Simulated scan of single mutants.
Amino acid sequence: MRAVLCEAFGAAENLVLKEIDKPVAEEGQVLIRVRAAALNFFDTLIIRNKYQYTPDLPFSPAGEISGEIEAVGAGVDPARIGERVLAYIRWGGAREYVVVNAEEAILMPEAMEFEQSAGLMITYGTTIYALKSRAKLQPGETLAVLGAAGGVGLAAVEIGKLMGARVIACASSDEKLDLCEVHGADLRVNYKLGDLKLALKGLTKGHGVDVVYDPVGGDLAEAALRATGWYGRFLVIGFASGTIPKMPLNLVMLKSVDLLGVFWGEAIVRNPEEHAQNMALIMQWVSEGKLKPHLHQSYPLEDTAKAIAAIQNREVKGKVVITL
């Protein structure tokens, strides 16, 4: 089978396309013929050994996939062969076949295509865990989303609206903010044109935002923290800016703000029941047409390096998918 491999940590252009052995489903596993594999910002890090996980070399990027079950191992109902499924696999998706534990292969929503389904697990899984499980976002609260036009950013805009929040999309261009409005944002801030803190304070009439969703980090993080209100919650999602901020803790103290870490990949291991409930809600919303992942672009397998470079260069609005 064909696979895109990271054989040595480094830049995306060092990835190679090779023929490797097709895996076999062992006891309790299913073999999935991959139809689409979604890429995320962490793929730009994991190939350079700058992510929380360090895979053994060689490995394939892409942590979420969709496809069809082609074979099952011992102990798995053969009736599952032919099911259209999606799965979160941490890494290893940029290849023609993957093997996962049977319970990790989730039925795709019937109305969705493989390209859209491939991007459901990480962005929406992370976001519902952040907003529902960590921040406990309430109807009527104000949610500020940084990097709102990216994959997790758009997911936060959509889910925030479904949870009844007043959503302020914050992004670096009017074009990106237009997309956020299409996906439900109530208000917008172009943080390239002015001070983020002042803009958020102005839109909340001085009260400050209730929840900040921050996948960006860098200088924007402190500005957004300064714009929180009393009992505000600040969600640390990631650091797409490339800079991990050092926050003045007096800001946290003076407004009784909660700084909340969001490490979805570990949370689903420690609390699988909560994860299952959250994903069931996501699938329900998708089936009802309330969530529609925005596909920025699909690339063929051999262009995986170009796709990762586009994410790293911040050229992407929504999701990037590899099709096979």
Rank of each mutant, 00 (worst) to 15 (best):
D43T: 06
R226C: 08
L131W: 01
N271D: 06
V316Y: 00
D186T: 12
E115A: 07
I32E: 08
V236M: 07
M1E: 01
E110D: 14
I282A: 05
A62H: 13
G147Y: 02
T126V: 08
G202V: 13
E83I: 09
F9S: 03
M163R: 09
E103G: 14
E181Y: 13
L15C: 03
A185K: 10
A148Q: 00
M247L: 15
L295D: 00
I81H: 11
L17M: 13
E175L: 04
V182D: 08
R2Q: 11
D43V: 09
E141I: 04
E19K: 07
I237W: 03
R233D: 04
E302C: 10
G202R: 14
V316R: 03
P55G: 14
P23Q: 09
R270L: 12
T142R: 01
R33E: 13
S117M: 02
A223P: 00
S133H: 00
V262I: 11
S133R: 04
A223H: 04
G208D: 07
A71P: 15
L162C: 05
L57D: 03
E7P: 03
L203H: 10
S172G: 14
L187E: 14
Y299I: 10
I81V: 15
D195R: 14
V262L: 03
N49P: 06
G119H: 03
M112R: 09
N40M: 12
G206Q: 04
R233I: 07
L259P: 09
A130L: 02
A307Y: 00
N14R: 15
M253V: 11
A3S: 15
V76P: 03
K197P: 05
D178F: 10
Q277G: 07
I282T: 04
G140Y: 06
G160C: 05
N49Q: 07
T228L: 13
K136H: 07
A74P: 10
E115N: 02
I20P: 07
R95V: 12
D219E: 14
G119Q: 04
I69K: 01
G147W: 00
A11F: 15
K246V: 13
D186H: 15
P61C: 12
E181G: 15
S66N: 07
S173V: 09
D21F: 06
D174E: 14
A149M: 02
G93L: 01
G232F: 03
F239S: 01
K319H: 14
R233Q: 08
N278E: 10
I244H: 11
A62I: 12
V252F: 11
P272E: 01
I308T: 08
V252G: 09
Y51E: 06
V269L: 09
L301V: 10
V257L: 08
S172W: 12
G63A: 15
L291V: 05
A12Y: 03
N190T: 15
E96S: 14
C180R: 01
R314Y: 02
A310D: 08
G151T: 05
L143H: 00
P300L: 07
A36R: 00
A267D: 00
D21C: 11
E68N: 12
A171G: 07
I106A: 03
A36Q: 06
E315L: 14
L251Q: 13
A171H: 04
A71E: 12
G67F: 06
V145M: 03
S173Q: 02
F234R: 02
I308F: 06
V252D: 09
K197E: 15
K292W: 02
N190R: 08
K319M: 09
A105F: 12
Q29V: 08
A74H: 13
G28N: 04
